[in-house]
Design a protein around this nucleic acid. Structure first.
Lengths: 335, 335
DNA sequence: CTGAAAGCGCTAACAG
DNA sequence: CTGTTAGCGCTTTCAG
């Protein structure tokens, strides 16, 4: 890489003159500025990012920790984060915790040495199950800002971006009730997560409020991917009168639809299905799945904004929590 | 952040003594080492990464440029790259080109200022269509190593990781022929890409070699996601006697299967389908899709290895191309 | 208008 | 065994 020093030598001026010239300093003669810039351009000079970071104690880099990049929700969130960060002149260093607490701790430790100005993350499943977030609080104690999105924790005082999980599930359930559904089952593989619990509660509350709904809430947990087929087939065996299904994760709604079609349920006449999925699954089914849209891009964008707000304004104290609106998008799997 | 200077002041020793002590230098008395380390631990000292990068002219960071993170193949490749890089003590800065050439150029320019030691990337669609890779060659001219994976270009002399696209499609086609299929259609949305062209060629070659195969090759291009439904339905309309489908992208195989089932094709009796998809789509269909497995994790891992090899051994000249074996995994959609 | 010097945090050659 | 110094590349104050 070409440096200021090399430019200075070739031009027989000092390093500081070169530096100032490249910044259009008033102190430098127009003539010199032209000469310096010409050579800089000719040699494709680029200011060394590392040196600037050291000088400014600021890297313009955000650490992003994603629990599961193969989950479409997180991939899309990353897309939005990268886009907004890039727009604001920030790079992102991506770490994938793969739902492991140790990897999460490791990533935080490895990057909290001046590598990044702050973190945007969603908490790993293992961490949420263990309910131990000391490692994240440790980062905050070092005065490195953190923004949590989607999977958050009440035990961490920082900026957060969430959706109204309770309300979204509540609304979806209410919709099925309004269709006259009498036997609504909730399925999902994220009941251990903060968001999963809230969604289950929203579902339960909607049923509870409905005086003429006589069945008990049914919550079916999918534990491992390889058992998803059987688990969902069991739903239809155990609850042959099921007439509404709410999936609170990304994929089980689609699988439920496939299985129901295989069993010759008439959808949506006999059975309605609502997924908590992203648009990507639409192409995989016919009829198309009614979903709760999470506005994932907005979640990512808002996360970056909150973080940069804090970076640019260290004195602000109160943590903000931004709630992104969800939307129930009716398609072919509901009446 | 706590610095060597602060430790030195508190201990009344020089900065270099502290630095050496922390590195277990023989020059330093055991007693001092203990004292220094104790304080460092107590204050949670971490060497400033930026300073070390500046000192060493090495960031231990890899720039990764991904064309489309919502594509499962690339998400998985990123997963593998991050995992291997992390294992080797490297961070990754992720940029998403979103298939745009300008974004690709931008990312390369912004990171080729000492931010990263090298790049791992797959070429954006727009770049491949325009067939202009000057910006990538410019990086190589700056002596920054680049590893290309999946989507490569003959006009770039660098290390590459690919699969045998021609061979994989050839093998899949041969398999369908061995089942006695007489009317095999290829579908996909990546015919503009290097990999897509090779796959089409492999398909065509297999047909051509088969003397008793009388139908012409049929290549159906899917242009936009929103037209995928109609495009595939058209296949069945135009070619009612189709008895074999090869999808060369991630999703169209699944869609073809759905549509065929809707049209009451008996699969795999009347019609076989082979997808170029990852395992993630398996849960979405019944029967499960026969696929060409790309060993995506190996692709990512190999890319990191090639890059680090080059970083650690600058003198090597010849570019290597590593070909990862594919595997035809027979499942329910073939006989 | 230009240059010298200090300093960001660290390492390492050299001096004591 | 410990300290001084220079330097990685840059910005910026201060001197000239």
């Amino acid at each position: 890489m070409i440096t200021l020093k090399q430019l200075a030598e070739q031009l027989n001026v000092s390093i500081s003159t070169v530096s100032k010239a490249l910044h259009n300093s008033e102190e430098i003669s127009p003539d010199t500025i032209v000469r310096v810039k010409a050579l800089a351009k000719h040699l494709n000079y680029k200011p060394n990012k590392v040196a600037i970071s050291l000088k400014n104690s600021k890297t313009n880099t955000i650490g992003v920790i994603i629990p599961d990049i193969l989950n479409h929700f997180f991939a899309k969130a990353l897309l939005a984060i990268e886009k907004e960060a890039s727009k604001q002149g920030y790079n992102i260093i991506t770490c994938l915790s793969n739902e492991k607490k140790t990897k999460e701790i490791n990533s935080l430790n490895l990057l909290s040495n001046g590598s990044v100005d702050g973190f945007i993350m969603s908490i790993a499943e293992e961490t949420q199950v263990a309910n131990n977030v000391d490692h994240i609080n440790a980062i905050l104690l070092q005065n490195i800002p953190v923004v949590l999105f989607d999977r958050v924790s009440d035990n961490i005082a920082c900026d957060k971006v969430i959706i109204d999980d309770f309300g979204a599930a509540y609304e979806a359930t209410k919709h099925l009730l309004s269709e006259g559904r009498k036997h609504i089952v909730l399925i999902g593989d994220i009941q251990d997560l903060s968001v999963g619990k809230l969604r289950v509660n929203g579902y339960a509350e909607a049923l509870k409020e409905t005086s003429n709904y006589i069945n008990e809430p049914v919550v079916v947990s999918i534990n491992k991917d390889n058992l998803i087929d059987e688990t969902i087939q069991d739903v239809f065996k155990k609850h042959p009168s099921v007439d509404g299904i709410i999936s609170i994760d990304n994929t089980s709604g689609v699988v439920a639809l496939q299985k129901a079609q295989k069993l010759n349920y008439n959808i949506p006449k006999d059975l309605s299905i609502i997924g908590f999925s992203d648009e990507n699954v639409l192409q995989f089914t016919d009829p198309k799945l009614t979903t709760i849209s999470q506005h994932t891009l907005d979640i990512g964008k808002a996360s970056v904004k909150l973080l940069l707000d804090r970076l640019n304004n260290k004195k602000q104290i109160a943590s903000k929590t931004k709630t992104i609106k969800t939307k129930l998008v009716l398609r072919g799997t509901t009446k």
